[in-house]
Nucleic acid binder design. Sequence first.
DNA 1: CGAAGAGTAGTTTTT
DNA 2: CTACTCTTCG
Length: 689
Amino acid sequence: MNYQQQSAIAYLSGPCLVLAGAGSGKTRVITHKISWLLTECGYDARRVVALTFTNKAAREMSQRLSELTDRRLMKGLTVSTFHSFGLRFLREEARYLDLKPGFSVLDANDSLAIIQEHLETTDKARLRAVQQAISLWKNALIDVDQAEAQAFNPSDLESARTYRHYCATLEAYQAVDFDDLIRLPALLLQSNEGVRKRWQSRIHYLLIDEYQDTNACQYEFMRLLVGKRAMFTAVGDDDQAIYTWRGATVENLKRLAEDYPELKLIKLEQNYRSVQRILSAANQLIANNISTYGKKLWSDLGVGEAIHVTPMESDRAEAESIAIRLSAARFERQAQWRDFAVLYRGNHQARVLEQALRELRIPYSVSGGQSFFDRPEIRDILAYLRLLANEQDDAAFIRAATTPRRGIGQRSLEVLGRYATQHGWSLFEAALNIVGSDVLPTRQSDVLSHFVAFIQRYQAKFLSRAPVYKSQQLTLESALTKVDASVDESPTQAITSLIREIRYEAWLFDSFDEKPAEKRWQNVCELIDWLQYKVDQEDLSLEMLVQHIALMSMLERADDDDPNTVRLSTIHAAKGLEYPHVYLIGVEEGLLPHTGRFEETLTEEEAALAQAHRIQEERRLMYVGITRAQRSLHISWCRARRRARELIACEPSRFIAEMGLVPDPDESDVQEQSISPKQRLSQLRALLQ
DNA sequence: CGAAGAGTAGTTTTT
DNA sequence: CTACTCTTCG
């Protein structure tokens, strides 16, 4: 532990900001600080909260923490993502926000559907833009009225109107979205003194990871949680701020110094991860950015080998070449597959790579990408669970009512929707009251009321379970209290019987070919297993489980099996991780830095400014990518790339020149041309036999 | 109402 | 090339 790390850990006199460069032992400082608080300073674990941005980071933190701390002292400690923490807060304080305890947590898909319904357009770009606008407004704590007042052009006005409709819909659904998980707690802490006092006296020390990624909302949340006492440690690196598109603002770093004049600033500049060659390139690159706090990273791990820069003919050739080079490198370096990572800008780039790797039988795993919980069959089942927990969740109602097909179609839903709007009901309530009304033919209303009765039957099953949330004295600790064990049927048993009753398996095999159907059914079974596991592990009620699922990005099983595979990952998803050998691909103008479409509504200067910010963020992204590498770094770019259905010419990224790198003579395209990838592939195959 | 077929648009990053 | 949408037919 170096001097700076030690002082960061031991500093407890007030607010503390640790500027931790890439690989400078950031997580180490946080975990040791928590351990220090618990074991040396006598802090009660229930009074300490550590917040991260990703589930992965939270998991790693508690993992590493438990390696250096007595388990008994950790009891009641909170290490979670901002969003999970916000969810827990909301569950406890739901009554102050007119939210019922079973409120739904909508994911991005659900919220997009609401927006689409209101806008009545299928223009995907527009929909995304509006969704983004709404999210940014929420994250900046701008309410509907303010948004409308600030709208200067028709496009913004339409977005603001949609914002209004969107918020109203969420309220009607008794649902919150991701942004609300932080926004609502922040607003409640602002407006309700009693709640504020309670939380401020409950939390004695707060730690925040990746502080540079906080948005205005999260800042406010944090500020109100720590109160005047201001006992917190924020750890971050302004050079690694790569989420400003999500509302994160580096301004928060400056604001911290302004709001807390007594703020203790500690810089961690020694890098323990990479060889000097890699670090120098990273430093040289990031020097092109305007930085808030200057940092000079250094390491004593030696100079290291040269950074390879390789031009490729096409994205296909790049993928094949990477596959070959991975095989060769593993052999030459006597390394494991898990020592290698291939990083890229966009998820779609994984496609070609996967193909190439499969051809060479190279084991790989893709991080990020499509989430397990995004698969249609999983969403089907979850729709039922969501509906059980909250019958006002219209989105869940529609999905559950129409899957599997039970004779409720577009037309019936339209009529039902109108009927519901007329009376100010949810779809569920409307369906409940539809028998006897003459809005639908008896055949349809029978099916609907049959469906409603079915849902109610299962609701009763779950309701008979101890409803944890009703307890008035619910606290952080007791939220996880064991569910009444005297009930005859476990939640997962009930879910299993529900799935059987809707004949989901049969429906799958009916609607799809044997192979895909089997896979889907397997996923459903996996979901049930996972639910069972969660129920056993954490004693969560169905409600809490369902709410939590929206926050799970991937199947969290990776920790038990430790696959020896090459990691394929977006640079974003690789943040915080490190690999001995990194291949950074697609380093081209237009892709990295990525250039999206420019906004027509902006003036020329505004557009130029936005563009400048964009480039800086992309540069930080490149910086993050580079600094993942410990020993060797390989950068490649393509002369041409398939995009949509045409081949477009590409230029090497300006970042390559900014780092002062030139193509590596040994691996230049001369060799690429003299021997085709296919030939090299078969050569290598022969070699490997 | 729902399934099968034809046509068409599409690519940033994520809790 | 593929994944999704819209259309048409039973």
